[in-house]
Write a protein that binds this DNA or RNA. Sequence first.
DNA 1: CGAGTATAGTTTCAGTTGCAACTATTCTCA
DNA 2: TGAGAATAGTTGCAACTGAAACTATACTCG
Lengths: 150, 150
Amino acid sequence: MSALDLSQFLPYRLSVLANKMSAQLATVYAERFNISIPEWRVIAVLGQFDGVSADFVGGKTEMDRVTVSRAVAKLLKKRYIKRRFQISDRRCSVLSLAAAGKHVYADVVPLAKQYEDALTVVFDPTTFAQFNAGIDRLQAQLAAVEGDLF
Amino acid sequence: MSALDLSQFLPYRLSVLANKMSAQLATVYAERFNISIPEWRVIAVLGQFDGVSADFVGGKTEMDRVTVSRAVAKLLKKRYIKRRFQISDRRCSVLSLAAAGKHVYADVVPLAKQYEDALTVVFDPTTFAQFNAGIDRLQAQLAAVEGDLF
DNA sequence: CGAGTATAGTTTCAGTTGCAACTATTCTCA
DNA sequence: TGAGAATAGTTGCAACTGAAACTATACTCG
């Protein structure tokens, strides 16, 4: 019987790595600001793109409608973000960071960068670039095989 | 205000990539055999290491006790695996694939390998080896910075 | 021995997740 | 125009999740 060594299997290896990394990073902001990973992602997008819709956030973060909707609801309750709706299209929300949210963003961004730096010391710049190129190629290939599975 | 581009941020990039990959792979066996990702991982370990304990499976798969316990319970109900307990230590389970589970394993392993191959065509062997080395280095570095976070 | 500690595994509980169905609004084109 | 399709977002539901408490068994050392 043909065997499979999980520890050498790419999807599994990436899953373990990414989950540990996300969880470790989350400890940096989770209890400090009482926000979850989806909530942080919403804040991260709004820090970069102010006044966008929930769907735009979903597109940027690859989170689905529902996850974004609930993250937005929690952030509104915590007053980390504000919401209006477009006059021209009242279906579309217009999200932006409230003062408290800007503080979270300003505090977390350097920590996140520090964390990334603390990990990527294992790469010299060229190797890191190659690793990133690998991620991009896999990402593209994922989309290519999509649907077309066996 | 210093900004963070999520789409260029390593933990985020890996998270998106790994989640998509796992989800895509799961479609290969999910409805075909009615098993979840944790259940497949248990089967994968038992295909490689017959007669091990639930904790051993947890160690190999990086899944916690609870996740393994529940996956095992479901696989038992579906008669994909069998369970005994050690005579010398009745706390320790002794898990092994039942006939149906062996079939699942025998069917899924080639599909999983095909899937991996379909993705890694984007790499020549050397590049793939370098990419894997990168994963290993990051994995090691994750453990190194552990606890020691800011 | 036997009280205290450690280990394997399960259960409870509270929170999260995603699909599908829903509301509300806007667009399309006969 | 206005009926039907499309889009933005929310909610109900059922399954999944992990932390903490629990059961049961085995080990340790005074």
